[in-house]
Design a protein around this nucleic acid. Structure first.
Lengths: 395, 395
DNA sequence: AAGTTTTCTCCGGCTGTTGAACAAAGTTCG
DNA sequence: CGAACTTTGTTCAACAGCCGGAGAAAACTT
């Protein structure tokens, strides 16, 4: 029951039908590979002849390859799979500490990867990113586009980073600069949205089939990415998903990126966990990173465990609010904190439960990210790849 | 960039293309009527010949009518408009106090209306609704379906009312009963979602063009309806939009429907306003309805004004959270409280502003409902009508 | 070795859009 | 007043794409 947007609706021409069916066939190859033409025909309502024509087209465009299949009592099928021999996308994740640049193939597999510390000076970071990107593009033929994940407020339509809190960069037109330097189209996204996109396209099958979920990405700050009907929800000016700044209480252990002390981010981000740890451990602790706190907690250190548990509890409070409001099918927790899931998972779930009395009981699945590698990197690749597989936009 | 849902995706056949274009043409007639074939051809990328064929089909199906047009220097156009001569839908709004039953035409205009007090006994209410619906269906030929708005948790897929707090009805399979009694298909929705649907399809043009907005419906309770990409967001089991039970503080003046005292509903519903008024006015007040409080406030009574202002302030707090999380293009306030907008509007906006420090400044439009008549009634009609105009579901 | 099964391809028939030519019904200007 | 122009709507051959049945290919089974 979607309302047609007359301003954007594009009329169906004779080739629209082919375009729609092409995407459906391509997605079958993507999700059920290896799969034969006959099997696709059987599962869809397309004739075998039609599937063959479409497959010819996809082969010609270099999107899929044929491999031998085993007979099940008759002529052996020719199995189809995504061509995964050459990289087609460049993914870049600009993190608060380090920046990762990687190439990926159609199936979303990372092929080569390089990283460097992120420089707090805008121009220097731009230079490094461009250098690295150029190197990859020169080395590998066939890279078609670049996906970029940024830790802040991003407007994907204009390609501008509106605000990166950690470095206090504002109105940074990174997409334009990258496009100019590489000659390739660049897609920019907020890190939480990128992580959500990664789960949607490359998560475990049971997650990929969920069409409405929320990604809670805990890093230095706390961001949320909302997936609705299989697409990232951007809201006005791409500013959606800032549940991190939702008011959930008072007297947080630290401040949020904007200085408030009542936001979810101030209660449940890595910074919040660190602040709790420092308070518990006293002066002796010195400079500590979040990764170290997790390591210590996993090693049995009490203060670190307590700091993480408390953080998990507040994650639960916020998640409970989000569930009440959006009733997603799943909530996925992402970021380095996932390593500590065995420690905090139970407490987090308990806290969600406790705060959900008003919401009635609905069994929303709350799960740690299914992507062991950096989900934001997969997301950056997904920014490019998803457009190849996405639904044909008709009405 | 929508991900294709292979389980639901339906392949494009030769007639799919016609179906898509038919919906586009029909929507042009709906939104720009009266409009000529030539004008539609000009605005879309369809040939005049194609538009003519589609218009013939729509005429035959009784969806549109022709009227004379004025020449602009050439052959005078034949203008097209929705056929609005006969009712096609029955809308039913079950409210906590009264139930409204009405017929509506294709354009969403209410044609005939009848109402009665809602009986707190399930069976009695079902009986009354069925009687009334049958009367309308017998009187008017051509009613095709029934839309029903309910004040509680509804699962539109099964057609069941999961929980109606005010009457404490649970697992009420009203849709099945109505369908059995009338022989017509019945669509059920939560009242806030229905109101949102009404704004989407029948609101002022500037609202209809907004594709992402949130409806905040203040009645005895407080519900929210979320519109994403021109469609109602339901979430898992249709339970989305329960931001009314979002935790926003402590010590609310009353309890929410589930008994909590920290929910938005407990701070900003009609019940909350009444509780504040009673406290301010002391014992002398006696039994007062919310409508009376609004009347008194509009008449200048201080206690009533203070109670409403405080309620407006808390509405602002919750709206601020919703804006932070969803960044909608607009927030629409609905329900009887809209009458008090001149009194509370400024305070509500101020409160949103104050609580949005963390969210950064984005000019989200916050507006009272544009539907003077009962928005939920228009919504109940929209439940039926929207399916006639909605996008062809392809992939 | 012949029959069976499964897979893939080829071809006439159907639906739908395109674009050009044409007919219709006004307005404008000499 | 009438011819030229404008705008609107219709008709028709050509083309794109899918359907479904017939046929060919390549294995397995008995």
């Amino acid at each position: 029951m979607r309302r047609i947007n007359l301003k954007k609706a594009s009329v169906a021409r004779s080739d629209t039908i082919r375009h729609i069916n092409r995407q459906i066939v391509l997605n079958y190859v993507r999700e059920r590979s290896p799969i034969s033409r006959a099997a696709i025909s059987h599962e869809t309502e397309l004739q075998r002849s039609t599937v063959s024509l479409i497959v010819d087209e996809l082969k010609e465009q270099g999107l899929i390859d044929e491999v031998e299949g085993e007979s099940t009592g008759g002529r052996p099928p020719i199995m189809l799979q995504l061509r995964a021999t050459s990289p087609v996308a460049l993914g870049i994740v600009l993190g608060t500490k380090q920046t990762v640049v990687a190439t990926g193939d159609l199936a979303g597999h990372v092929r080569e990867q390089e990283q460097f510390l992120t420089d707090p000076r805008e121009e220097e970071t731009v230079r490094q990113i461009i250098d690295c990107a150029r190197k990859f593009i020169k080395k590998e033929e066939g890279i078609e586009a670049i996906g970029l994940s940024l830790p802040g407020l991003v407007d994907p339509e204009t390609g501008k980073a509106v605000f990166i809190p950690h470095f206090r960069w504002r109105d940074w037109d990174i997409a334009e600069k990258l496009e100019a330097a590489t000659g390739l189209p660049v897609k920019v996204e907020n890190d939480a949205n990128a992580a959500a996109l990664a789960e949607l396209w490359f998560g475990r099958p049971e997650i990929r089939e969920v069409r409405d979920f929320v990604m809670v990405l805990v890093e230095e700050g706390l961001g949320t990415g909302i997936v609705f009907d299989g697409q990232i929800y951007h809201g006005e000016a791409g500013a959606a998903g800032e549940f991190g700044h939702m008011t959930i209480g008072t007297d947080a252990p630290t401040t949020c990126a904007a200085g408030g002390t009542e936001c979810w981010e101030a209660f449940a981000s890595e910074r919040a966990a660190l602040a709790r740890y420092r308070k518990l451990a006293g002066r002796g602790a010195g400079v500590v990173t979040f990764a170290q706190v997790v390591d210590q907690a996993l090693g049995g250190e009490r203060n670190a465990q307590a700091a993480l548990l408390e953080t998990g509890r507040y994650l639960g409070v916020g998640i409970s609010n989000v569930i009440g409001g959006l009733s997603p099918e799943a909530v996925i927790l992402g970021g380095p904190i996932v390593r500590a899931w065995p420690l905090i998972g139970a407490e987090l779930l308990r806290s969600v439960e406790e705060n959900s009395i008003c919401h009635g009981l609905r069994d929303v699945r709350i799960i740690p990210s299914t992507l062991r590698e950096i989900p934001t990197l997969m997301g950056a690749l997904a920014l490019v790849l998803s457009s190849k597989f996405a639904a044909a936009t008709t009405a």
